[in-house]
Structures are given as C-alpha cells and as structure tokens.
Design a protein around this nucleic acid. Sequence first.
DNA 1: TTGAAAGCGCTAACAA
DNA 2: TTGTTAGCGCTTTCAA
Lengths: 342, 342
Amino acid sequence: MSKSNNSKRARRGSGAITLRDVAKLAGVAPITASRAVNTPEQVSPDALKKVLDAVQRTGYVPNRMAGGLASSRSRLIAAVVPSTVMSVFMETIESLNGALFDAGYQLMLGQSGYSAAREDSLLEAVIGRRPDGIFLTGILPPGKSRTRLLASGIPVVETWDLTPTPIDMLIGFSHSDIGRAVANFLLDKGRRRLAVVRADDERAARRATAFADTALQRGQTPVFVVNVGDSRSLASGREAMVRILNEAPDVDAIFCSSDLLALGVMTEARAQGVAVPDRMAIIGFGDVPFLADMVPALSTVRINGADIGKQAARFLIERAEGRAVTPCVVDVGFAIVERDTS
Amino acid sequence: MSKSNNSKRARRGSGAITLRDVAKLAGVAPITASRAVNTPEQVSPDALKKVLDAVQRTGYVPNRMAGGLASSRSRLIAAVVPSTVMSVFMETIESLNGALFDAGYQLMLGQSGYSAAREDSLLEAVIGRRPDGIFLTGILPPGKSRTRLLASGIPVVETWDLTPTPIDMLIGFSHSDIGRAVANFLLDKGRRRLAVVRADDERAARRATAFADTALQRGQTPVFVVNVGDSRSLASGREAMVRILNEAPDVDAIFCSSDLLALGVMTEARAQGVAVPDRMAIIGFGDVPFLADMVPALSTVRINGADIGKQAARFLIERAEGRAVTPCVVDVGFAIVERDTS
DNA sequence: TTGAAAGCGCTAACAA
DNA sequence: TTGTTAGCGCTTTCAA
C-alpha cells in the first residue's frame, strides 16, 4: 500500500491533499477531477461519482490560492472600513459579507483611518491579493491611492456618499441633502435657534454646512457649532451639551453627527434637567439599532446600511463575473425618523 | 520601443505587471528582483537600486496568491465571528486586525451564527484559502468542523472562553468565575433576591448557572431567570424588566448577559420609576465604550477585548513563522466595574 | 466527455 | 551575490 515517498519527492508543498491525489484515487485525470468539483455538469455521472467519493474519503479541500492564480479570479472581495467599533458601518459589512458568502466569495477586511502612509500600504496589501472587487466606505479623494486603484483595473464600489466623479461604481446618499432636510424639519417644527454637534469628519462637515446654510437662508441666527474633534464618544456629546447650555442658551434644537453623540447630548440634558423635546430637540445620525427603544426614543436620520451592503455585493459580483452594471450609481436616500426627541 | 506582443503571447494571465517585467526592466534575473523586494539585505546595493527603480516605474504590486502558493505561506489569517453588529467582539477584531496588518498579515472575516450547514461551508471556505492561522470566537465543540480543523494542521486560537481541551491555542476567561464573582459581589452588597436576564447563548448560560448556584449556596431564594431568546436588543431588556417587576417583585439585583440588555432593563426601570440602584441593582456584561458616561453609569463586567485580539495576533504570527508558543493557554481574566447601578 | 500540455506568478533548492 | 531549474496546485487551451 504505502505510497513510499521516493527519493526526491516531498521537497516542497504543504503536504495537504491535492487534486492530483483525488484524481489518482478516483482513477481519472486531474482535470476531470477539477471539472467534477467545479462544473459537475461537464462530467459523466460515473466519473462524477468516483471523484466525489474520493473527495469524501480524502477530505479534500481545494486550494483557492492555486485556483485563483490559474484562473485570475480570486473570489475575494476587499472591504476598507474606518474604525469598526460601535460604527454605523457594521450593518453594511455584515450584509455585504453575507451576500458575498452566499455567492461563493469571501471578505477581506482592511481598516483605514490611520496615517496616510498606512493607508498607502493598506491599498498595496489589498491590491496584492488581487481581489475581484473592492468595497470602499466613503469616496476616495484624488491622489496616489486613487490613481493606483484606477490603474489596477479592479472593480470598485464607493459607498456612503455621492460624487459626480466616482472611481467606478457608487452607492450612497447626499450628506448635503440630509443637512438641509434636518434643518427644514426642525425649523418647520418651530425651532428658532439651531446647533450642530459634530465629529471632525468630512461627511459630517458637509451635513453641518448644509444644515447651517439652510437655517441662515431661512433668516435664522447663525447655527452654533461644536466640533468635538476625533472623539466620537458619548462623553464628547455631554461636553458639547455643556458648552451649548453655557455659550448659547437660546439654542432649542441640536443636530448631532452620530447617534452616540446625540445620546451624550441627551444624557447631559437629563442630568441638567433640560426638558427634551420641549426645551431642546435632539436629532442623531445613523439610527443604531437600540435608539427606538430608549426613553425618550431618539429621533435620528436613518440610513439603510444593510441595503448598501447588499447592493454593493450584487454590483461587485456582477462585475467579477464579467457582466456590466448599469446604472452603477445608486442614491439610496435617507429618512428622518421622528421619535420622541424632536 | 514597442514590446510587440508576439504571435502566441498574451493568452492567459491578468495582464498586470509581474516580477518578470520588473526583472527585465532592471536587467536582472526574476529571483534577484524577488529578493530585492522581499529580502533586500540579500542583494547588492546596485541591484537593489535598479530593481526598486523598476518597481517604481512600473507600479509593480507583488501577486500574493502566487507568492503564497509557491511558499505555502498565505500571510492570511481568518477570523470567525458571530454577528458583528453592536457586538462586544468588534474591539477584539479591530485590535487583531491592526496587529496583524503591522506584521504583514491580512484578515479574512467569516461570520458564523447561522445554520450548521452554513458553518460547515464557512469552514471549508476558510480552509480553502490556506490561511496561516485561524481565530475563533468561542470554543469549537467536538464535531465535524473540529475534526476538520484539527486535520488541516492550521494553527488555531480559540478565544473568549476556557476549556481543558482546546483545539490548539486558547485565550479566554472563565464564564463560571464571572457568574460566581458577580453573585458574591451583589450578595456582599446586601442584595437578597437576584435575577438574571440572559440571551440564549451557551456562554451566557454558564455565567447564569454559576451565578444562580452561588446564590443558592449562600442560602438565597432561587434566582429568577428570564431568557430573552435570540434577541439581544434593548427592547428585550425592557420586556424582561417588566416580567421581573410583575412576577418577582422582590428582586433587588439583576445580572444581564450583555450591556445592551442591561441598558434595556435600566430604561424600563426609569420608565416605571424604579430607583436604581436603591431599589434595584443592575450589572451588565461586556463594558461597551459609552456605558461609563451614562447617567446613571452602568456597572458591568469588563473584558479586555483589545488585549485578547493583540495576544491572539502574537500567537498566530509566532506560529505562522514556525516558532512554538508556550504557554499557549492564557486566562485574561475579567473585572467587575462598579459604577452607579450597583 | 475526457485528457495532455502548458502555464498562472512566484519562491525553494541548488549551483555557480 | 546571482542565477538556473523546478515546481506550488490549479485551470486554460487545444486536441482527441
């Protein structure tokens, strides 16, 4: 029986079962085994059975690196996300991953949000894997990275934003529209002095600007803005609220750049006995799952993150299989969810 | 100039720049180019310069699939996590990913928590990529998957739990110890009637059991248990609190299996005018980032998730580079964080 | 329907 | 220090 490792064999390789082993056991050529595994309809029932049998007996698991190398299709999708902890993007990633997996693709996760140098090496690492598609949270600004991505020829979908000049595909919504809509919403409710509490983030800035402009256009006092910097914590929300109460006591409505910040604002309001929403309206952003069940339930701007993930998966898969995607720009919109705090 | 694609060239391949192209441009052999890129110290300054120059000019990015195939080292680590949304595991994944990236590894994300069939195909997909290591949240119970993983020979680290029979490496803490510690903590504070609100999850069950046993041993009335099933939402916490107030009005301390559940319990307590902590103590689990800044600040059990991720990365990398890891079982412990609600 | 041959892009092994 | 050769495990191409 013994397959007796001859003299010069066993020099390289991982030692795992290969397609050759399976083919030998089944008594067919390797390519027939390959077809039995990948495209069973191209193989006679007899051969199919023999191969599948051999697969069972050996516990063979195809080496996707080898397959990917040979076929130039990695069946890998890379997703680049900023910090994931407590993030509104997780819902998107989860649905993206689920949809990809069902279609036989796998997800590589890259974390952005660090230094430019690290961004660069992230991208290099990603491209090095030759993914069949790349998912980006946000829009990639012009620069070396963008050029490189473009040059790589890999399908890309940018998300969570809109731009007239996407790299490739785009699934997002207008942050300016949100800012305007929230301002109008608040003003229509009779609020007179608006404030913004926002993190130091380009998209949040755009929402805030549109929000402020709209208020100004409608003849209001300038919006009071608190920039909490990089800290998106609940504590920052509380501090921001303290500042508002001290420095702009006439403010009667606050738009926060994240639900967590809004939660902080609300916490401080309660701590200081500020009536919500009577004296102060509060609106968050993102609609994290548990907001609706709080008391008072936080009003917010809802983005359908799961939908973004699902559509991105569809786009990426279509392109990976060589099909065109049209239209490849989608505005998923948003919704102001009115609950107790507005 | 034109490199004129001769008759039978350009049949296969992705068309991207390869190491051969770089080597040709630099006027060296491919292997020299390879060494210049991977182990520059093995190459003369002159050759190094020429190669790096060619890399710059062509925008060459090494194909890691090819490299992985040739070297049997994928520089890929797979992580299997249950649902990521609002999950206590994200901190771990984030730190794991960061540490891996710094060492030149990349993270593949697999989501478990679905059907057994899907678990199976997840594992197959993972093994198919030939990762250099696998990160598991939780302990893999005996079964087909476990056998398969063992057979694959891939280094594995199980986490967030302890067991005398790990597959390989282990970084976790004792859920029973937590249950006992929390019960003792509450009882020592003079609480008399304890309750548990927990999700339908094996680890939560173990915490709850130890918690209940300890109370019993110390002569207390049996612990009142509310199992909220698969729903880990804040709303479930509220419902659980309603049940406790109705069915066991003498309860004066509640241990929740997650912070979100605890937040729900607290929300309902406030809604019903139940004084916290005077009439009711509440303790959560996980220590999600913003708890400390709420009013009242929620007491909880803190797990250092980032530390688990960092240590797991270290273990996995050591093993990937062929070094042994001893000891390869680590108890990271836990801490009861006493804040306002206990 | 099946197979032989020839790579995919890279690196290990050996030799110079 | 550099190069040659021979694969890694699979799939494409072409022929039977």
